[in-house]
Design a protein around this nucleic acid. Structure first.
Lengths: 127, 127
DNA sequence: CCGTATCCCGATTGATACTG
DNA sequence: CAGTATCAATCGGGATACGG
C-alpha cells in the first residue's frame, strides 16, 4: 500500500477498512443462519421455552438451537433461567439488555428485506 | 408506516413473524461470509478490478470471489464492465445504485460492530 | 419436557494449478 | 490480469436416539 495513493480519496480508503473491520466483527457474533432470528424471537416474546423457540424459529433442529443458544449466552445476548423447583424442569430463555443494542441493526435489516422482497415481486428482473 | 410505540402482546407476535420473515429475506441475499464485505469495498472504492478487490476483501479466494460477484451481479448490487479494447482485458466492478439502499444496514452493522468490539475489550465478561 | 450424543451427508471453501 | 478447474478438507446441519 505504498505507491497508489492518489490523494483523491484518502479518507474513503480508511473508512472502507474501518467498515470492513467493524462489519466483520459484527458478523462474527451475529452472523450465520440462525443467530439474528433467535435474537428477534427472544426479544419479541419476552420469555420462551426451548421447544416453543424451536417452533418459532422455523426449520431449526434441536441440536443447532442448543448450540446457538450457548453461543448467544456466552456473548451476552441471552439469559438462561432454570426453574429446578418444578418437575419436569422448566427452562426459559430471555433476551438481555445487551441484545437491545441490536435494535437498529434488526430494524435496518428487516426494513431492507421487506422492501427488497417487494422490489423483486415487481420488476427487478426486467431491465 | 405505523407508530413504533411499544404495545403489549398482540401486535408483538405479528411483528415477530414479520421481522423474522423480512430479516430472513435480507439474509438470503446479503447473508454469508463475504457478500456485505464485497459490497462495502465496492461502494467505497468506486471502481475496482478483480485482483484489487481480492486484496481488499482479505482472505477470500479467487474462486469464491468470482462466485460471489456473479451472485451479487444477478441481484443487482454489482455491475461488471469489460474493457475489451485493451490487452490484456481489463474488467472493473462497480456498485450499483441499488446497493446504496443497503447504506443504513451497513451503517448499523458497522456501528454496532465497532462498539461491540470496544465493549469486549473493556469488561463485558465481568458482571 | 429439555436437551445432548452420534452418525452422516452434502454444500462450502481453500489451495493449487492452469488457461485466455 | 481475470478468472476457471480440480481436488481435498472442513463444516453446518438433518435424522435419530437417548438421558436427565
Amino acid at each position: 500500500m505504498e505507491n497508489d495513493i492518489e490523494l483523491e480519496e484518502p479518507i474513503t480508503k480508511v473508512n472502507c477498512q474501518n467498515h470492513l473491520s467493524s462489519v466483520e466483527d459484527a458478523l462474527y457474533v451475529i452472523g450465520g443462519k440462525w443467530k439474528l432470528k433467535i435474537i428477534i424471537a427472544l426479544q419479541e416474546h419476552g420469555s420462551i421455552r426451548f421447544n416453543e423457540l424451536q417452533r418459532i424459529v422455523a426449520g431449526i433442529s434441536a441440536r443447532v438451537l442448543s448450540n446457538e443458544l450457548k453461543d448467544l449466552e456466552l456473548n451476552g445476548f441471552v439469559k438462561r433461567i432454570v426453574h429446578s423447583e418444578q418437575t419436569p424442569v422448566v427452562v426459559e430463555y430471555i433476551s438481555t439488555d445487551y441484545s437491545k443494542t441490536l435494535k437498529t441493526v434488526i430494524m435496518a435489516l428487516s426494513e431492507w428485506g421487506r422492501t427488497h422482497k417487494n422490489n423483486i415481486r415487481e420488476d427487478v428482473f426486467e431491465k
